[in-house]
């Protein structure tokens, strides 16, 4: 069971969180004309990385904030966590 540092609440067990997928995906702006390919990339296409992965989790049984977690998908090592509004370089 992972041990995740919520930027708002501190270290909490994985059971308090729900997973939200790739955090690097940006939703296309509203009312913008975009190609099928761009839309498919946003909705469906994911890289399924092995290694460092920036992903979303929601602290669903805690502060209910969505957070960003930088995790190694093969070792589960968590490097850093961020608030939803933090830009990750």
């Amino acid at each position: 069971m992972l041990y995740i540092k919520c930027p708002h609440c501190g270290m909490r067990p994985q059971t308090e969180f729900s997973y939200g997928g790739d955090a690097s995906v940006k939703r296309p702006e509203l009312n913008k004309d975009i190609s099928d390919q761009e839309w498919d990339d946003f909705v469906y296409n994911r890289k399924s990385l092995r290694g460092k992965h920036l992903e979303l989790w929601q602290h669903i049984s805690g502060c209910r904030q969505w957070i960003k977690v930088e995790r190694d998908t093969s070792t589960h090592e968590i490097f850093r966590t961020f608030r939803a509004d933090e830009e990750v370089a």
Binding site: Q58, W66, A84
Partner: peptide, 13 residues
């Protein structure tokens, strides 16, 4: 509720 929170916190803060 999670869906609404997602858009408010991440997409349209």
């Amino acid at each position: 509720l999670s869906h609404l929170e997602y858009y408010l916190q991440l997409v349209w803060p």
